[in-house]
Design a protein around this nucleic acid. Structure first.
Lengths: 184, 184
DNA sequence: AATTATATAGAACGACCTTTCTATTTTATC
DNA sequence: GATAAAATAGAAAGGTCGTTCTATATAATT
């Protein structure tokens, strides 16, 4: 088993466990146990638990954007609806229980490390993404529309915890249609 | 200092600390220290940390609903907008950093205690509240509208963590207006 | 085959966690 | 003022935490 395979296994296992039980709810012992790896193998690849959290977040962000990019044709008739639908599918497959980035912001705010910055960076990128979409469609109030759609996606994620991704997405698509139709 | 004053102090301090740093991020030592209370005083009033969390959630739910009730005249012209505005003020004053109930659901899901139930109960009540509002206004698709507004409030709470309560509320009110106007 | 880099199991560290205990002091009731 | 109840400080128990260390084994490179 090559060096990077072990690292990848650790990242996968850690992401899953952190997502399921929270960063503070999972110990390194559990991670190395489920990854079938020795303690020092983890510390060989990651300088600390915080560093592991950082890399997990970076990996998850990459997966999210590659997921969105592969489902949204930005020059289609209704890229906004496509984005909301893609986000809904992501929720159903990967994010049935809250948002890992928001959670990282809450857990690590004011603790003097890079984690909060990475998580906030992801959210800033989401806003930028919708601004770009609004721009391409020639909407005049880009920032306004972008913020409304970011709010919509965040709401969908929260609702998924409460009523499941399927229904949450159904309602958010309905709302997205209303907004697109009635916003210049 | 009477018996109930100490208990109230503990509840206040615990709510503040749990909200700021998360349930798992705060130890009992810190709570009793900031409440100026002995260890056994806490255990005299609460059977365990989990029990303290439960009572904190119950207290916070009461405060939320008395806040909403005092700001929303249910028979007004636009009770939906009033509710969104009231929720926004609540966020600004009490909930600038995520939602304590959602966090409780995530942190304690599948851990065999009452905490998750209390938190989910609060969210169920929110949905019921909006169904009642829709009913009074004679909207035909109550459940649909109620879910959309619940999603809107959840989104506003999340966005507050990212851009602050003021701006988050501004966008959610704009969306609420659009939805009310264009939904039967 | 020899050498170098990685991975291994498992113990040990000090810190912190929740909960319990003890013994003393404060407060309330009669 | 005597008696009972509640709150106190502080230690201790029994865990788990993140991190480091040691000493052995496996794999990769030369």
């Amino acid at each position: 088993m090559s060096r990077s395979k072990k690292k990848d296994t650790l990242l996968e296992v850690a992401e899953q466990l952190f997502y399921e039980h929270g960063f503070r709810g999972v110990g390194l012992k559990q991670i190395i146990s489920e990854a079938n790896v020795a303690t020092m193998t983890l510390y060989n690849h990651f300088s600390s638990k915080d560093n592991l959290v950082e890399e997990v977040l970076k990996q998850r962000e990459e997966r999210y954007w590659s997921y969105l990019d592969s489902h949204v044709e930005m020059d289609s008739d209704s890229p906004f609806i496509l984005a909301v639908e893609a986000h809904g599918r992501w929720l159903k497959e990967q994010s049935y229980k809250g948002d890992m980035f928001l959670r990282a912001i809450e857990d690590y705010a004011g603790t003097d490390n890079e984690i909060e910055n990475i998580a906030r960076g992801h959210k800033a990128k989401l806003l930028t993404y919708f601004q770009l979409l609004a721009q391409r469609k020639g909407k005049d109030n880009e920032l306004n529309l972008a913020n409304q759609f970011t709010l919509l996606l965040e709401g969908t994620t929260s609702m998924t915890t409460l009523i499941g991704a399927e229904k949450a997405t159904e309602y958010s698509i309905a709302m997205a249609r209303t907004i697109v139709q009635h916003t210049s």
